[in-house]
Design a binder for these strands. Structure first.
Lengths: 151, 151
DNA sequence: AGCGTTTGCTTGCAGGAGCTAGCACTCGGG
DNA sequence: CCCGAGTGCTAGCTCCTGCAAGCAAACGCT
């Protein structure tokens, strides 16, 4: 487990700044967030490293979005949005088989566009290439090929 | 701290499903994720509740996006995340026609599941409305004004 | 002066995360 | 049969998170 010193951008300072901006005391925030006030003190002073749940509670009490808090704590790296594949994977309304089918169709479409991309050789192609590279990096993170290998 | 029993949707099962889909052993995933294999076993069997950092590592090893993993673990609540339809709509790698096709297929799948479930199509309409409202609510929940006031 | 309230903090501890060591089992090869 | 490699798991342990108890300081009131 990383020590509090390793936290990027000092989440404790971030929380204290937000709290002071909101003009509430440490105890008021602790009560509101449902954590102990000594622990909040330790967090703000960098003596302890709060869990994601605690961060979630503090974020809620400070009316800050959870992703923003996680981002500051280094628990998210700026990719806030799920890609299509990930959205499919977490959708509770699809069966596993449907998820795999949909993912495969998506991949097929995307591959088709990759092949057809050279057909638009102007600035449009440049823009698409840039998007492609960026999205491919994200796509490889979502394990679409792995899902296909199941069948 | 919530006990592992309280985890929504059983993150352990989710991880095991992904791992098995990827056709890698528990030890291979553990090595790749940088956690011990017994601990991964405990996680998968619901005996331990992993921290966000561990989830991040596992997500990376399974090539799943971190937000998707957090979502499943209940560390994010889906607010601010696009649903499948929205994700398709904003995907820069799809043509309009492909987007429409994919959306239609998704809807078909979802309707099939709604039909198979005792709930009638009204459930499908409700779900869509819920998604829309949820997303709007999510936007207002991010409190960008508060963050801006900090700086 | 005393008192009560609020504030932020330190200390010691319980419980749980994550690990090492190692077990039992399966499979394939000699 | 034996052996080695791979697999998933249990048990005992250390360390850290988050807490309760309580301290010291600041402030306002009588």
């Amino acid at each position: 487990m990383a020590t509090p010193k390793d936290l990027p951008q000092d989440i404790g300072t971030f929380i204290r700044d937000l709290r002071q901006t909101a003009k509430i005391s440490l105890r008021q925030l602790a009560d509101k967030a449902g954590v102990s006030n000594p622990y909040l003190s330790q967090i703000e002073n960098g003596l302890r490293k709060p869990s994601a749940e605690v961060l979630q509670q503090i974020a809620s009490a400070l009316r800050v979005s959870t992703p923003a808090m996680y981002l500051r704590a280094g628990l998210l790296d700026g990719e806030g949005q799920l890609g299509v594949l990930a959205a499919i994977a977490v959708d509770p309304e699809l069966t596993i088989a449907q998820k795999q089918s949909l993912s495969q169709i998506y991949e097929t479409f995307r591959n088709e566009n990759s092949r057809n991309a050279p057909l638009a050789p102007s600035s449009s192609a440049t823009a698409e290439t840039a998007d492609l590279d960026e999205h491919e990096a994200g796509a490889s993170r979502t394990t679409p090929i792995t899902v296909e290998e199941t069948k």
